[in-house]
Amino acid sequence: MDVDLWDALRTTPLAEVRRRAAIVGELAEVAPMAVDDAERQAWNDGGGQSAVWYFTPDGRALLLTFDHESELNLYAEGDYALQESFYDGVPEDLVRLVRDRPENYESLNLVDEATGRTIHYAGGVFWFDGTRWEPAEGFTAYCEREGVDAMGESGFGYCLDPYLLGREFTPESVVANRVEHGWYEDAADREAALAEVRRLFARHA
């Protein structure tokens, strides 16, 4: 487990997590979406990895992470029942946010051939009960049973890297993090990006 990042998520106020999710989502050009009375925010890297957040009005949240190259890519296996089991322990009203919903880039559906019901795929399933974050019981039970590195294979570290949890979150730090990942060809590109990110932060002050 990436203990530092997990601790950073658990100690960051939900309002700040939500603000970062909105900013990172907009940077990734993923529009926020209303799902029932919850707000969905998401990020993807354009290559099959994603983080999807659902924030409810009562101060709870659901987080799904996905790494398409990992052992936890159940979409590749087409195993609906196993994917459904990953959500065990998560309150049903939160699971309803991802059950029998239209597909989107970050969240394709696994289908139960017997009933036609669907559920969004996820390598990692985590939820916030209003007080603390927890991994879903079904997700952790499977990883323990199969000897799978839950945080590593779920893409937790990679998918949450853009949110800079536990680190300074400013326009400058966001651009610096992108530079570390090979963004921008030259100094002029970086300066233009910084100006745009500053405008984005101002909108989400």
Rank of each mutant, 00 (worst) to 15 (best):
N177V: 06
W183V: 12
Y163K: 07
E191Y: 10
H181R: 11
E196L: 15
Y163H: 08
N177D: 13
D186Q: 11
R178C: 09
A188C: 12
A195Q: 10
F169D: 00
V174E: 01
H181C: 07
L194E: 02
R178W: 10
R178E: 13
D189S: 14
E191N: 12
G166F: 05
E191G: 11
E185V: 07
A193Q: 07
F169N: 01
L164T: 00
L165Y: 01
T170R: 04
E191K: 14
E168Q: 10
L164K: 00
A187Y: 11
R190D: 06
A193T: 05
E168D: 07
L165W: 00
R178F: 09
A193Y: 07
V179R: 13
L164R: 01
E168P: 02
V175L: 08
R178A: 10
E168V: 03
V174I: 07
E191P: 04
D189W: 11
D186S: 14
L165Q: 00
L194P: 02
G166M: 06
T170M: 05
D189A: 15
L165V: 02
A176N: 02
F169V: 01
R190N: 09
T170C: 03
E196T: 14
E168K: 11
E196C: 14
R167F: 03
E191Q: 14
V179C: 05
F169C: 04
L194H: 08
G166H: 06
E172G: 08
F169Y: 02
Y184G: 06
W183T: 11
V179A: 09
G166P: 01
R178N: 13
G182H: 09
A188P: 08
E180T: 06
V175W: 04
D189Y: 13
A192C: 10
W183F: 15
T170L: 03
E191I: 10
V175I: 12
L194K: 06
A193E: 08
R190P: 04
D189H: 14
P171R: 10
F169Q: 03
L194T: 06
A192E: 13
A193M: 12
A188W: 14
D189M: 14
E196K: 15
L164V: 00
H181M: 10
R190Q: 15
Y163P: 01
V174Q: 01
L194Q: 07
V175K: 05
D186R: 14
G166Q: 05
A192N: 08
G166N: 06
G182W: 06
P171L: 12
L194S: 08
R190C: 10
S173L: 04
A193C: 08
L164C: 00
